[in-house]
């Protein structure tokens, strides 16, 4: 059974850690550095445990040695070939050797090879539907109304929609030309397109900025909620006899 006073102690420790890290907003002091190093240490310690407890034990060790039958679970044989991965993993540690550090590139190379082999497949599943959806109708199918009505006819393409689609295409092509033709060119068309591309990209970046601000502010609001609502209002005040 968990001790009754433990939740408030835990909250208090959490608030102290938050205040410690937030002190950097005033200035980088020794108080802040204490908490900063504690944070780094805890994160590294968790990584040390997680490497075995959450990764290697289940995905490597258990598969290599298998498991015996117990109530309701059949026996699973071990596959000895997994053992070969240990020497390959050890190769990474040769990075500290001046003479043989080239060996450390093998495990990294295998990971890169596995990544690169997937790129062809990934490219088509990721970008195929996007290319398809970028092919938008550029000619109206109806002139009954210029602006898209509030209840549009099913399947109809209105002139205003076409203008929107043209802007979509212009943005896509000019932004792509800004990226793909980043070398110097004397073509007025390309130069004009890349300038347009830069301007239109700014609109995208503006929207990304707005969305990012939302996330960052929300995370800060959440911390204020943790300190002032969860700790003070719901934890501390009832404890000292408040409402």
């Amino acid at each position: 059974m968990q001790s009754e006073s433990y939740p408030i102690i835990k909250l208090f420790v959490g608030v102290a850690c938050t205040v410690g890290l937030y002190s950097v907003l005033y200035r980088e002091t020794k108080f802040y550095r204490f908490f900063e190093h504690m944070f780094l240490g805890l994160a590294a310690g968790w990584a040390m445990f997680a490497l075995w407890g959450e990764t290697l034990k289940s995905t490597w060790w258990d598969r290599m040695v298998g498991s015996v039958a117990d109530e309701g679970n059949p026996a699973v044989p071990g596959y000895w070939a997994w053992a070969l991965l240990l020497p390959i993993g050890v190769m990474a540690y040769f990075v500290v050797s001046k003479k043989h550090n080239w060996i450390s590139r093998i495990p990294i190379g295998i990971i890169l090879g596995l990544w690169s082999g997937q790129q062809v497949q990934v490219w088509f599943t990721r970008y195929g539907p996007q290319m398809q959806s970028s092919m938008k109708p550029l000619f109206p199918t109806t002139w009954s109304e210029f602006i898209t009505p509030l209840q549009p006819e099913a399947g109809a393409v209105y002139p205003a929609q076409v203008i929107g689609n043209l802007i979509f295409l212009l943005t896509l092509l000019s932004a792509m030309s800004y990226f793909l033709f980043s070398f110097e060119t004397k073509s007025k068309l390309f130069n004009g397109m890349t300038t347009w591309g830069r301007w239109l990209l700014m609109i995208g970046f503006g929207a990304i900025f707005g969305s990012t601000v939302m996330t960052r502010f929300t995370l800060m609001i959440d911390r204020m909620y943790f300190v002032f609502i969860e700790f003070f209002q719901q934890g501390l005040i009832p404890l000292i006899g408040g409402r």
């Binding site: 539907p129 996007q130 969305s211 990012t212």
Partner: peptide
Amino acid sequence: TGVMGPETLNYYQSGQVKGVAIGL
């Protein structure tokens, strides 16, 4: 999250994501 929102909307528009809630 909001940070991933604009990029995910790209996939939403192409039909690769059927519905999406972004950030707070």
